[in-house]
Every structure is written in C-alpha cells, then in structure tokens.
Design a protein around this nucleic acid. Structure first.
Lengths: 175, 175
DNA sequence: TATTGTTATACTCTATAACTATA
DNA sequence: TATAGTTATAGAGTATAACAATA
C-alpha cells in the first residue's frame, strides 16, 4: 500500500493527463471526434457486437454510446443490423468505409505518438501502457462490499492453480 | 523507438483512462467539480500566482481558467487581489476556506485511490505516476519544427555544461 | 414486468472571438 | 500596438429520465 503523498501525486497526474488527451483530439478529422473514434477502434479490435456490449467496453452510459454510434452510422462507417436472436438488439459492424476511416485514425495517432515519444525506450512505452491498463482494471472491478459465505469458506479447489485468493465477482468494464 | 502496435495500444489506453477520471470526478462535492478542484490543487501546491500562470499550469485557455477561478472565488475559496506591479493582472490566493476545501478534496481522492489500489505495490504507483508525468512533458515540449542557425553552428559555449545538444524553446506547460 | 435501445434535457469542460483596462 | 483578463457563444462528452419496442 502506497503513502498518502503518492496517491495525491497520482491524482494530480490523472487530472493533468487531460492535456495529452486534448492534444491527441486536436489531430482528429473534424467529422470524427474522439467519441466516434473510440467506437470505431473498439469495433475494429473486438469485432461485431451489440450496443450494450459496446457501452460496456466504452465504460459510458448506453445513451452516450447510442449517440456516438448514430454519428458514425450517419457517415456510413457503421452498419446497424437487427439481431435475429433478439429483436430489441442491434448488431454493430464496421463497413469498408469505416475500416478505412479507422486506418486513417490509427495512422494519425501513431504518427503523433511516434513524434512526441521519439526519445522513449520501447520498454517504457510498454510499461506505461500496462500500468494504465492495470489502473483501469483496479477501478472497474469493485470487490463486492459485502462478504459472501464462499469468501470466508476454505478454497474448495475448483482446479485453477493460479488464483491465490478469492476472485470476487468482477463487473469488469473496458478493454 | 517503439513499434506501431505499441503506440496503438498506448493510444487506446489514453482514450480509456477517461473512465477512471470520471470515477474520480463522481466523488467530488457538487459545488466543487473537477475544474475547480484542479485550480485549488495547483494553488495549494505552487502558492500564489497570476491567472496566466495558472492557465499555463492547467494547460487550458485562460478563458477557461477565468471561469474556474470565478467559480472558486464566488464560493470564497480564492481571493483575487490586484497586482501592484501590473494593474491588468490579478494575484490568486487560497483563502482559509479554500484550504479547508482542498484538504477535503485530498481526503476524498486519496481515500478512493487507497481503496481501489489497495493491492498495488508502492513501487508500481510511483512508476505509473512518473511515467504519466514524463508523458506530459514529452507532449508539452515541442522541439521547434524549423531549424535555427544556432542549431547547426558549433556550440559557442555559453557556460552550461549539462546540455549535450541544443535545448530548443520549450513552451512547457503543466506541472 | 424487465430489458434494449433511442431521444430529450441538463451540466461540465473546452476553445474562439469580442471586449475592457491597462502597458 | 500589445498584453491580462473577462465574458459570450458554440461544440463535444456525459448522465438522468422518459419513452418505444420487445422479451
């Protein structure tokens, strides 16, 4: 467990990281703001999915997701087809045009990072990325405030060897 | 220099870190949103300063700074006194009430981080904080796109021994 | 009755531009 | 003429609540 001052400093850095995000946002095409870009990125990375799944990955309310998706669909980057299994749902899918837009986004952001981080060691980029991912995990998975009977009972061996303690329900969110 | 895929992943993490920031924002007092909290934090950390200096530390436009400061001043957390040296400027200063509010903010954020990051090693918290700080530095200091005559001429020795190459104008920003 | 998704409304943060008062 | 700061306006992101269609 870290000290008080360390957490204060981390909080400050979290607050200030917004400046970097704004810088990244400024290089995006006017028709594709950051919210839309995130939608395209996640669809490209995880493949077709429903609105609710995308909202979970984005870690925002579904109403927000709906607007970003509508924006992308209006521009022909996403196709919303009805889900045969559940007529309330819609399956989201990148179009060829959407894939092209995503490639362009990737080029822009990678170029910017490559320029700004030109003096960074490979290793440090990887470490920062990993630690940021872990930070998100630590925030998303809240360890169920109330104790369950199973949590106090001895580990009745389900076969997994790599789980030292109990792994509480995770309600994981982004990716 | 890192690879393409590594930069893509870092960009994704930067985009997704917003979820953590939103979580942090949700615990703030209704009267003190994140923008105001950042103002109080920087005044507490760096002491009295002018609007323009605060805007630089926040890395936002001064118009934005002005609104956050006005919000804090309206609540008695900040005092704006005229600068004797330049009547256009105003010196910002935390009041006792502002200090109390800042202490409360610190308590809230540190408690949240301590809970969420309870299983983090001290070392990892420090590493993440350092890398985020370095990321901001790498973004803020842009190495003057155009070459200056001085940059190509031999180092005509101004006395500094610790500057291996040219240190271009930095327009540094946050802190 | 519960869930999926959409839309309306409101709030926060930010940037640009116009304006004032000084320098 | 240029700079420090304020204010008005506009745009993006998000959350809550009300709503429609379906489970």
């Amino acid at each position: 467990m870290a000290e008080h001052a360390q957490f204060e400093e981390l909080a400050r850095q979290l607050s200030a990281i917004g400046a970097v995000k704004r810088d990244m946002g400024r290089i995006l095409p006017p028709a594709c703001p950051s919210g839309t870009a995130a939608v395209l990125t996640l669809l490209g990375r995880h493949g077709d999915m429903r609105m609710s799944k995308l909202a979970e990955l984005l870690a925002v309310d579904m109403s927000v997701t709906s607007r970003h998706v509508a924006h992308a669909a209006d521009r022909g980057w996403i196709e919303r087809s009805p889900d045969p299994a559940d007529k309330r749902s819609r399956i989201l899918r990148l179009t060829a045009s959407g894939r092209a837009q995503l490639d362009e986004l990737s080029r822009l952001t990678v170029d910017l990072l490559a320029e700004r981080l030109s003096d960074w060691a490979d290793e440090d980029v990887a470490r920062l990325t990993q630690l940021m991912a872990r930070l998100r995990e630590s925030f998303d998975c809240r360890p169920a405030p109330r104790l369950t009977p199973a949590a106090t009972a001895p580990p009745s061996a389900t076969g997994t060897t790599a789980a030292p303690f109990v792994a509480p329900q995770t309600t994981r969110t982004p990716a």
